[in-house]
Design a protein around this nucleic acid. Structure first.
Length: 572
DNA sequence: GCCGTTTTCGGCCCGACTGTTTTCAGTCG
């Protein structure tokens, strides 16, 4: 499937054209097409071969020709030409705060700057201030931006932003000038990484709120401060923006600042088509300018003829069309998970005893917890020998004798060897209540070999789940280059559940894969991969990913009661 | 670049803030 590959090229073309000075609408067309292809639930190669590219909204004559060329030759002459015209390092400059395509282009044309190092030099020597539109302050801000970029690499993992955001919220809630407050932006949508935090408040005294906002103890520097909008940088490098609006605009502002940008663009064009104008202050009559609604998000969506759309869905991946056809999914709720199947104990590389884990799992409100320790060949994680497996099963039985209304399920996270066989004999595997199979070695094998490896493991009748199927580590390791469609089909045919691993640097399967897998009939299990009881609440991020992947309660095994699960897994 | 129930040309989402200007372009979300 080349969708990702095609989309990547289109995104890069958009960046290159931006720097080249092309009009905004042209580069936007490339980005919209890239995004559509990325989220398409069909193989772009098939669509291209059947000459149906132009039936995809946002793809016209010119883009169709380019996409066809990419699909058929794996490259694009137009793209190669552009890359020769514009130095590669220029695109990195776009990442810097305050530098957009116009300024980057001016730096290149007037000073010949092509990368961060040259930019740093020019700023230090005060060379930018002579250019039109640049000054001393710009130079200082760029130098700061470079420093920040090197320190934080731009985005943080969801769990970091989640805790920063909630701490800030607790502080702000003590300000009596604030009537309503919410987190907006990508954190409200629960994206896997967060660039900055957005907080929305409603208040009649927004200047006082802004004064209180910048006094938060973890603020390192105030980036900008106005009456309706203020931005600060926290000590850990995360940027936080706050916006203040009046009560009657709160719903429309929350909708607007939650995004995504692409979702909003579509919402606005729907508003225009229906004779309205939509902005962060409300929904207005296009002709008279009269205020119609804006208090709550619900009334905003409803007035546009749509049901309420959950924040996790707002990525313009078909949710607006689904909403208008009344086929939005009934998303799994955060409180519907009844247990965790992926917890490591002291038996392998976890840091807590089974009894401690039980204590915390009960505090989570669970009915069961599945202890899945590593298997024998994974020496680095103290994988269990077959002899130790029997002793562990014994301990689980003893713990269970002391429990009522709660049960420990004894499982294993069994390593999948490079040939697709498992790290325990079938005789041992049958002893467990459940088996999670996962890849932990030989990441360098070819995509075809990895696909065969994982499909073969699913064909073992003892395997119930596949752990972190693509093995990606956000920001550190790319996902395995597998044929995901083959894997989804094999999972469906062998009744193997695919895990949504909730550990914040994994979130694997991710949202996009989860949605595609669901469309191919796959079932899921959400596990935390906890190595300590304090990791158990990571479940929240796994559920968030499931929701972003359009999953419902019925798609997920651990929304069932213990009784039902014992029946399904055959471990009564 | 795309798109069309007024249009095959002329639109395409829009407002706040900054830093540069002396009325506004660029950037951001």
């Amino acid at each position: 499937m080349k969708n990702r590959f095609v989309a990547d090229i289109l995104y890069q073309i958009a960046d290159l054209l931006d720097v080249k000075g092309e009009i905004f609408f042209k580069t936007r067309a490339y980005r919209i097409a890239a995004q559509t292809i990325e989220a398409l639930n069909e193989d772009i190669e098939t669509v291209s071969n059947e000459n149906r590219l132009q039936s995809i909204p946002g793809i016209g004559d010119a883009l169709a020709k380019k996409i066809k060329e990419i699909v058929e030759t794996d490259k694009l002459v137009y793209f190669e030409k552009l890359k020769k015209e514009i130095p590669e390092g220029l695109l990195n400059l776009l990442e810097l705060q305050g530098l957009g395509p116009r300024k980057v282009s001016a730096l290149y044309k007037n000073l010949g700057i092509t990368n961060i190092e040259e930019l740093r030099n020019a700023c230090s020597k005060g060379k930018l201030r002579d250019l039109d539109g640049f000054g001393e302050i710009t130079e200082r801000n760029i130098l700061r931006g470079i420093q920040l970029m090197e320190k934080t690499s731009g985005r943080v993992l969801l769990n970091i932003a989640y805790s920063d955001g909630n701490n800030y919220l607790d502080y702000l809630k003590k300000c009596d000038r604030i009537e309503k407050i919410d987190i907006a932006g990508s954190l409200r949508r629960k994206k896997e990484t967060i660039g900055d935090l957005d907080i929305l408040v409603s208040s009649e005294f927004s200047d006082e709120v802004m004064d209180y906002f910048v006094k938060y103890p973890s603020v390192q520097r105030v980036l900008l401060k106005g009456v309706t909008k203020t931005s600060v940088l926290l000590n850990d490098g995360l940027q936080v923006d706050i916006r203040a609006v009046k009560k009657e605009s709160y719903g429309s502002a929350l909708q607007y600042f939650t995004g995504s940008k692409e979702h909003n663009v579509k919402m606005r064009s729907i508003a225009i088509r229906k004779g309205f104008k939509l902005n962060e202050y409300g929904l207005f009559d296009k002709n008279t300018g009269e205020y119609i609604v804006g208090n709550t998000e619900e009334e905003l969506y409803n007035t546009l003829g749509l049901p309420y759309i959950e924040p996790e869905l707002r990525e313009n991946r078909g949710e607006i069309e689904a909403a208008s056809d009344s086929r939005l999914p009934n998303l799994v709720k955060y409180e519907e998970i009844k247990g965790d199947f992926h917890v490591h104990s002291l038996w392998s590389d976890g840091s807590d005893s089974i009894e401690t884990i039980v204590h915390y799992a009960q505090k989570m409100g669970y009915e069961f917890v599945g202890i899945a320790d590593h298997s024998q060949s994974l020496k680095i994680a103290q994988g269990l020998s077959e002899e130790k497996v029997f002793r562990k099963i014994n301990e689980v039985e003893n713990v269970n004798k002391k429990l009522s209304g709660f049960k420990v399920l004894c499982g294993t996270e069994c390593d999948i060897k490079p040939d697709g066989s498992l790290d325990y004999s079938d005789m041992i595997l049958k002893k467990f209540d459940f088996v999670v199979a996962g890849i932990h070695t030989a990441f360098g094998m070819s995509g075809d070999d990895q696909t065969r490896r994982i499909v073969k493991s699913m064909e073992n009748e003892n395997v119930d789940f596949i752990a972190h199927p693509t093995c990606r580590m956000i920001g550190r390791r790319k996902h395995l280059d597998m044929d995901m469609e083959k894997i989804f089909d094999a999972a469906r045919e062998t009744d193997t559940y695919l895990e949504i691993n909730s550990f914040p640097d994994r979130l694997d399967l991710n949202d996009v894969h989860s949605k595609l897998a669901k469309e191919r009939g796959v079932k899921f299990v959400i596990g935390t991969d906890s190595h300590s009881s304090v990791n158990l609440p990571f479940m929240h991020f796994g559920i968030a990913t499931a929701r972003r992947g359009w999953l419902e309660k019925k798609d997920i095994l651990n929304t069932h009661s213990l009784r039902e699960i014992e029946k399904i897994l055959g471990c009564e």
